[in-house]
Design a protein around this nucleic acid. Structure first.
Length: 724
DNA sequence: TAACGTATACTTTTT
DNA sequence: GTATACGTTA
C-alpha cells in the first residue's frame, strides 16, 4: 500500500478508512470529506489485499455519485470497472435481475418504466377498468402503489378497511397484472423484485452473501425501508420476520455478515417526502449491533461564520444524532442579508452582487443562486438575461425525457418487446398514420377480452375501419424486428428513427430542428454505450430509463448556476445566494402542518447554507408574484434562528418606498393600515398585513405572523402597532 | 381525427 | 404565470 493513500487524512477519516470488517456508521457532516473517505476505503481494502474486486459492493443514490466514486477509485488503482459492483440501488438491482431474470420470474427482455411511463400505465389501467379517475386520481394511485412497494408490501399484504382502500388495493393488484402481462417493471419494482429474489432463493442469497464481504452505502440517511431491507438481506442479516416465517434459514453467525460501512448525515436528510427514512440510521445501529460510530465533524469547505450559522440553525431541530461542524479556517465574511421590496428588486440585487464578485475575479460557475421552489427562478432568469449574464438552470427536461427521444425509444422497445403497451400506444399513431382513439379503444377491448397485449390484438386484425392502417403498423414493427440481427446498436437506432418516419416528421415541423439534432445525439449515445458497455438493446434501454441524462443545460461556458436547494445537495460554491427566505416560501407553507415538515425545511436550509465556501447571501422579498398574484410575506423564522452577530444587514431600516403596484379594489381604510404594512402584536410579534375587511371601527385585518400563523384580527381589540 | 380553446392546479425529486 | 389536460369544433 502506498503511504500517500492515507496521508492527509485527519484522525477520524483515517480511523474510518482503515476500519476492520465490522459494521460501522460514519456520521459525515457537510464538507467533511465523505466521498474521499468512501473511495479511499475501497482503495485501501483492495490494495492491502483484504478483499478482491469481486468482494465489494458500493451503493449510492444517484448515477453522478456512483460515477464519481468509480472514477476516483480507478484513478488510484488499475481496476476492471465492470467487476466492481458500484452503482445506484436501482442500477445494482437491475444488474442482478438481468442475471437472474428467470429466478425472478421476469421475461428476459423486461423493460423499465420511468415515472412518466408508470403514470400513463396507471391512467390506461383506470380507463380500461372504467374507474372514475376523479375518485381515484392516477397520481394518488401511483403514490399508493409506490409507497406500498417501498415498504415491501405486495397487494396481498396491504390492509384495507373501507370501500375506498379495498378498491385501491384491488387496483394495485390489477396494476401488477398489467405490468406482468406487458413485461415491464417500475422503479420500485426493481428493488422489490430483487429483494424477493434474494429472500426466496437460498442458493442465490448465500452466493451473494459469500461474495460481497464489504458493503458501502453512501447517503444512508436517504434510504427508504425497502432499500434497508435489501441491504440487510444482502449483508446476511436477514429479516427477522421472514426468519420467523421460515422463509429463510436461521440467522447466520454474526461473524459471517458482510461488513456494512454506512455513511450518512441525519442533518442533511431532505427526502422524507419521497419515502426516505432517517430512522434507518438508528435501526442499523440496533440490527447490526453497531459498535463503531465515527463522526466526521471537521469541515474543509466553509469559513467559520458560515458554519456557525449552519450549526446554530440546525440546533433548533430535535432528535438529532448530534454533530457540530468546525473548521480551522478563519471566521471570514459575515453573512449578508438583503431585504428587498419585491422579487424584482431581489433579483436585481443578485445581479449587482454577482457582477461585483465577478469583478473581483470569481468565475460565474463558482457562484450559485438557490431557491426553495423552481417557480422562483423565472424572475431571476429574467434579470440575468436583461443584464447579459450567462447562467445555467438545473432541473429542466433531461435528455432521455425529451419527447422525440421517448418516441424513438418506444420503437426500440417494441423491437425488443412488442407486448409493451405503453410503448405501442405512444407511437402507434406517431407520426400520424390514421389510427385514432376509436381504433385504439377497439384494440384495447379486444386485448383485454383475451388477456393479451395490444400488440397481440393488433396482430390478429379486427381493428374495424382502420384495419389496414393497423396492419401497416404491425408490418413496420415486424420489419424492424426482422432486420435487427447483426446490426450495431447505433445502426438499429438509426433504422428505427428512419423507418418509423420520425425523421421525416420532424423535418417537416417548423421547430423540429432541435429535435432532429437530439435524435442524432441518440445515435451517438448508442455508439458510446456500446463502447462502454455491450451491444445490447435491452441494456441500452435500461440505461436510458435508469440514467435519464444530465439535468443541466449545455456545459462549457462560464455561467452562473441556478438551482433548487434540493438540487444543490452535494455541491459547493465560492458564493451562494439563498433567495426567498420568507415565511411561507422557506419554510414552505405546505410543510408547516407538522413539526417533522418544519424540521425537514430547516435541514434544507442547513444544506443550502453549507454549500457556501466563502460568501453567503440571504435575501428575501417583501412581496412577490406567485401563481399570478402578489403575495406579501415576512422574513423567514430561519433568519431569526441565526445569531444576529453573524449577520450583516445590507439595508436594515430600509423603508419600502416602492411598494409594488397593486390595484386598489377597496376604499382606502380609515385605520391607516394597508396591505403590506408591517405591524406588531403583543402576543404574536411582527407580521404583515395581508388583507382587511371593513374600514370603520368594526374592521378586521388579516395578518401573516409567520411562525404564529395567519390570523384575522378585530382592530378594535387587537392593539396593533404600525412598525416604521 | 386533429386542432384549438378554455379550465385547472401548483414544494422539493432520483431512480 | 405557465404547463397541462380535457372538451369542443372544423
Amino acid at each position: 500500500m502506498s503511504s500517500s493513500l492515507l496521508s492527509g487524512l485527519n484522525p477520524e477519516q483515517l480511523a474510518a478508512v482503515t476500519l476492520p470488517a465490522v459494521p460501522a456508521l460514519i456520521l459525515a457532516g457537510a464538507g467533511s470529506g465523505k466521498t474521499r473517505v468512501l473511495t479511499t476505503r475501497i482503495v485501501w481494502l483492495l490494495s492491502t489485499g483484504q478483499v478482491s474486486q469481486h468482494g465489494i459492493l458500493a451503493v449510492t443514490f444517484t448515477n453522478k455519485a456512483a460515477k464519481e466514486m468509480l472514477t476516483r477509485v480507478s484513478a488510484q488503482l488499475p481496476i476492471n470497472a465492470r467487476s466492481l459492483w458500484i452503482g445506484t440501488f436501482h442500477g445494482l438491482c437491475n444488474r442482478m435481475l438481468r442475471l437472474h431474470w428467470r429466478d425472478a420470474g421476469l421475461p428476459e427482455a423486461f423493460q423499465i418504466m420511468d415515472t412518466a411511463d408508470q403514470l400513463s400505465a396507471i391512467k390506461r389501467l383506470l380507463k380500461a377498468l372504467n374507474i372514475d379517475d376523479e375518485k381515484y386520481p392516477p397520481r394518488e394511485l401511483m403514490y399508493y402503489i409506490n409507497a406500498n412497494k417501498e415498504e415491501g408490501r405486495r397487494p396481498a399484504e396491504v390492509e384495507a378497511w373501507d370501500q375506498h382502500s379495498q378498491q385501491m388495493k384491488q387496483l394495485y393488484d390489477e396494476y401488477e397484472r398489467q405490468c406482468r402481462r406487458e413485461g415491464v417493471v417500475d422503479f420500485a419494482e426493481l428493488l422489490l423484485r430483487c429483494y424477493e429474489l434474494l429472500r426466496d432463493n437460498a442458493a442465490l442469497r448465500s452466493h451473494y452473501h459469500a461474495r460481497f464481504r464489504y458493503i458501502l452505502v453512501d447517503e444512508f440517511q436517504d434510504t427508504n425501508r425497502l432499500q434497508y431491507k435489501w441491504l440487510k438481506l444482502l449483508a446476511g442479516k436477514g429479516d427477522p420476520l421472514d426468519r420467523l416465517l421460515g422463509k429463510q434459514p436461521a440467522a447466520t453467525a454474526s461473524d459471517e455478515a458482510a461488513a456494512v460501512f454506512a455513511v450518512g448525515d441525519d442533518d442533511q436528510s431532505i427526502y422524507a417526502f419521497r419515502g426516505a427514512n432517517v430512522g434507518n440510521m438508528a435501526d442499523f445501529q440496533r440490527d447490526f449491533a453497531v459498535e463503531t460510530v465515527i463522526k466526521l465533524e471537521q469541515n474543509y469547505r466553509s469559513h467559520g461564520n458560515i458554519l456557525d450559522a449552519a450549526n446554530a440553525l440546525i440546533a433548533h431541530n430535535r432528535g438529532r444524532l448530534g454533530k457540530n461542524l468546525w473548521t480551522s479556517e478563519s471566521a471570514g465574511d459575515p453573512i449578508r442579508v438583503y431585504e428587498a421590496a419585491s422579487d424584482f428588486e431581489e433579483a436585481s440585487f443578485v445581479v449587482d452582487e454577482v457582477r461585483n464578485l465577478q469583478r473581483e475575479g470569481t468565475p460565474l460557475a463558482d457562484m450559485a443562486v438557490l431557491y426553495r421552489s423552481n417557480a422562483q427562478s423565472r424572475v431571476i432568469e429574467h434579470a440575468l438575461f436583461q443584464a447579459g449574464l450567462p447562467y445555467r438552470v438545473y432541473g429542466g427536461l433531461r435528455f432521455f425525457e425529451r419527447q422525440e427521444i421517448k418516441h424513438a425509444l418506444a420503437y426500440l422497445r417494441l423491437i425488443a418487446n412488442p407486448d409493451d403497451d405503453n410503448a405501442l400506444l405512444r407511437v402507434i399513431n406517431f407520426p400520424v398514420r390514421g389510427i385514432g382513439n376509436r381504433t385504439l379503444e377497439i384494440l384495447g377491448e379486444s386485448a383485454r377480452g383475451s388477456g393479451t397485449s395490444i400488440w397481440q390484438a393488433a396482430c390478429s386484425g379486427g381493428a374495424g375501419r382502420s384495419a389496414a392502417a393497423v396492419a401497416r403498423f404491425v408490418q413496420l414493427i415486424e420489419g424492424m424486428r426482422a432486420q435487427q440481427d447483426g446490426l450495431q446498436l447505433a445502426e438499429l437506432v438509426q433504422l428505427a428513427i428512419e423507418q418509423s418516419g420520425l425523421i421525416e416528421h420532424y423535418r417537416n415541423e417548423k421547430e423540429g430542428q432541435e429535435r432532429l439534432e437530439n435524435l442524432d445525439q441518440l445515435i451517438s449515445a448508442a455508439a458510446v454505450f456500446v463502447q462502454e458497455n455491450e451491444n445490447d438493446v435491452n441494456a441500452f434501454l435500461a440505461h436510458a430509463s435508469l440514467e435519464a441524462g444530465d439535468h443541466e443545460a449545455a456545459p462549457g461556458q462560464d455561467a452562473l448556476q441556478l438551482m433548487s436547494v434540493h438540487a444543490s445537495k452535494g455541491l459547493e460554491f465560492h458564493a451562494v445566494f439563498l433567495t426567498g427566505i420568507e415565511e411561507g416560501l422557506f419554510p414552505h407553507d405546505n410543510s408547516l402542518n407538522s413539526p417533522e415538515g418544519l424540521e425537514e425545511e430547516r435541514r434544507l436550509a442547513y444544506v443550502a447554507i453549507t454549500r457556501a465556501r466563502r460568501k453567503l447571501y440571504l435575501s428575501l422579498a417583501q412581496s412577490r408574484m406567485l401563481h399570478g398574484q402578489t403575495r406579501f410575506s415576512i422574513a423567514s423564522r430561519f433568519l431569526s434562528e441565526i445569531p444576529e452577530d453573524l449577520l450583516k444587514w445590507l439595508n436594515r431600516g430600509y423603508a419600502p418606498s416602492a411598494m409594488p403596484a397593486r390595484k386598489i379594489e377597496k376604499a382606502a381604510p380609515e385605520h391607516g393600515l394597508r396591505v403590506g404594512c408591517t405591524v406588531e402584536h403583543a402576543k404574536f410579534g411582527q407580521g404583515v398585513v395581508v388583507d382587511y375587511d371593513g374600514t370603520g371601527p368594526g374592521a378586521n385585518v388579516q395578518v401573516n405572523f409567520g411562525a404564529a400563523g395567519l390570523k384575522w384580527l378585530a382592530l378594535e381589540y387587537a392593539k396593533l402597532k404600525l412598525v416604521q
